[in-house]
């Protein structure tokens, strides 16, 4: 589904990603862990189409297409979804209106009919239950004044409505209390299928108890320095990132 090959990216002349390689197949969940500032969000944002980064080398193939050539909206329509680490507040834009516009834009791209108000409402009601989101949040401007946890829940709610093929969750767990973490993870798991895939960026093993990954990758200084199964996350929790650096160092 997704293949990232030797991706180098820089911002203002500073290289942040120094050759990232990653392959994600349909049905898989990949966890990416790594220290603060290692480039996890940068990678996530580049996949979603953020234009602030210069891709100096490498390529990203998504379902046979060159992902980096596509606009953010086309990527979304092709099924890429990023749950932001820091969801943006947009005063004056109503949450429901925003989501309906987004869904219908994607449907239009795919040659499907727009959902009318009734059908949309039915869909929204169903998905709201999935993440146990408060209906009031829908009536408010997008993320404006939402608590940290409410913002994260809103991201997963959007994901549920837009039903993407490739979901990238950037630290969706941070800021969530234990109950919310369970609810959100449960939501993600319910959306899981053999046809879609997810990349889950997190700092904590905790989340991975609920969303069990097929692979765990460790990103350090803009490179994936270690990959393994779900047990790798446990090792990291125990030994810290220095351990990966040491083992890397020993291998060279």
């Amino acid at each position: 589904m997704l293949e990232i090959k030797n991706l180098h990216a820089s911002v203002n002349g500073n290289e942040i990603l120094h050759g990232v390689n990653l392959k994600v197949n349909a049905g898989e969940i990949h966890a990416i862990m790594g220290p603060n500032g290692s480039g996890k969000s940068t990678l996530a944002q580049i996949l979603a189409g953020r234009e602030d980064y210069n891709i100096t080398e490498g390529e990203v193939i998504y379902n046979g297409k060159n992902l980096l050539d596509m606009s953010p909206e086309d990527r979304a329509s092709e099924g890429v979804f990023l749950a932001f680490q820091y969801p943006v507040e947009i005063p004056g834009v109503n949450n429901t209106y925003f989501l309906k516009t987004a869904l219908n834009a994607i449907r239009k791209y795919r040659g499907e009919e727009s959902l009318d108000a009734m059908d949309f409402l039915a869909l929204v009601k169903q998905k709201m239950k999935l993440v146990e989101m408060d209906e009031d949040l829908l009536k408010r401007p997008v993320n404006e004044g939402f608590s940290g946890g409410e913002k994260k829940r809103n991201e997963i709610f959007q994901m549920a409505v837009l039903n993407p093929k490739l979901s990238i969750l950037d630290e969706t767990d941070s800021g969530l209390d234990i109950d919310a973490l369970k609810i959100v993870s449960n939501g993600v798991n319910k959306l899981r299928s053999k046809d879609n895939a997810a990349i889950v960026v997190t700092h904590y093993q905790r989340l991975l108890n609920y969303i069990v990954p097929d692979f765990v990758h460790v990103l350090v200084d803009g490179q994936i320095v270690k990959s393994g199964g779900k047990e790798l996350a446990l090792q990291l929790e125990e030994k810290g990132y220095d351990w990966t650096r040491e083992t890397e160092g020993a291998a060279v």
Partner: peptide
């Protein structure tokens, strides 16, 4: 730019996203 990107990342075209923000 941040808001524009957020809207676009949800599938809303650039022009429409601009209009939404302007309207808001």
């Amino acid at each position: 730019e941040e808001s524009l990107f957020y809207l676009r990342s949800r599938g809303i075209g650039k022009e429409q996203a601009k209009n939404m923000l302007t309207y808001a």
